[in-house]
Design a protein around this nucleic acid. Structure first.
Lengths: 155, 155
DNA sequence: GATAGGGCTTCCCATCATGGGAAGGTCAAG
DNA sequence: CTTGACCTTCCCATGATGGGAAGCCCTATC
């Protein structure tokens, strides 16, 4: 199976398969005489596993741990559970940050007439720093001083 | 005021101030004879505004729009409100994705004994794709085929 | 056998926000 | 004049992902 088929079968793009190989998340694929990567069903299963872990919000490091545990037939299920729960905690924290933002924006938005007059409490809030719900918020775990964007940019 | 003071006063790092200038989000700062950027109180206010918009989850593009509206004394408050509501909708969608992940992981985690036996339904779920809550989920707005990671890697 | 087209290879660049660090110039205090 | 803190620009890295170029390979068709 060439990389294109493996991509289609696993739901991981060919680009990403090469990437995962480059960063060592998966072992180098075998090569045909012409240098084409070749994959078998077990490889595809690993790729599918990776895709599902990604869909659950695991990053590369977490996936690597998960893969190691998956391959280790003697691991304790407690080890896996720990990882899952750490992920859950992280997700909950992010959700908390996002909800704090939503609350702030909603409060601001609600106080804005939304007509054609220029006066706008939303801008005023940004200006003065009077963002009550978020001011001391992030309260869940401190202000959202995240290193990475939480998602696609605002349109 | 040099860039360091402006950074301290606004809560935006010097690095980011230069970056915002480079990408045109803010106009080029004035320069001293020696080439140092110099800032005044109005500049700091803009930086603070930017920081607060970022804390609300606006991306560069959204901030640029917000800044334009802020500077435009004749804008309709409805325009601002539209932006805020778009942001809220986006945040809600992201929250939905994250919550779907949490639900799936919790279901999986709950079914895992978490002792030292190797059998683990969490890994099994990843293996077989039997992730009920997420399988058809993302239901909020389609599967989480996001272009950007949802956050920092799993520790 | 030649040619077309699609798939494969590697390599580079971009995103988005942010920080790290190097190499070198500047300024204020001693 | 030296020292140390601060500034400048430039490059690199993160994390996951995609776009695209240049070039090789394979298969089918004429």
């Amino acid at each position: 199976m060439n990389i294109g088929q493996a991509a289609a079968a696993s739901g991981v793009s060919a680009k990403m398969i090469r990437h995962y190989e480059a960063i060592g998340l998966i072992p180098p694929a075998g090569r045909s005489a012409a240098g084409y990567r070749s994959y078998g069903d077990p490889d595809v299963q690993v790729l599918r596993f990776i895709r599902r872990a990604r869909d659950m919000g695991f990053g590369i490091d977490g996936i690597a741990e998960l893969l190691a545990l998956w391959r280790d037939r003697t691991r304790a299920s407690a080890d896996v559970k720990r990882l899952a729960e750490a992920r859950i905690a992280d997700l909950r924290q992010r959700i908390g940050h996002l909800m704090a933002m939503v609350e702030t924006l909603e409060a601001l938005s609600a106080s804005c007439s939304g007509d054609d007059r220029p006066d706008c409490p939303i801008l005023k809030g940004f200006e003065t720093g009077d963002l009550s719900p978020a001011a001391g918020a992030g309260g869940i775990g401190g202000p959202p001083r995240r290193r990475h964007p939480a998602g696609p940019a605002a349109g």
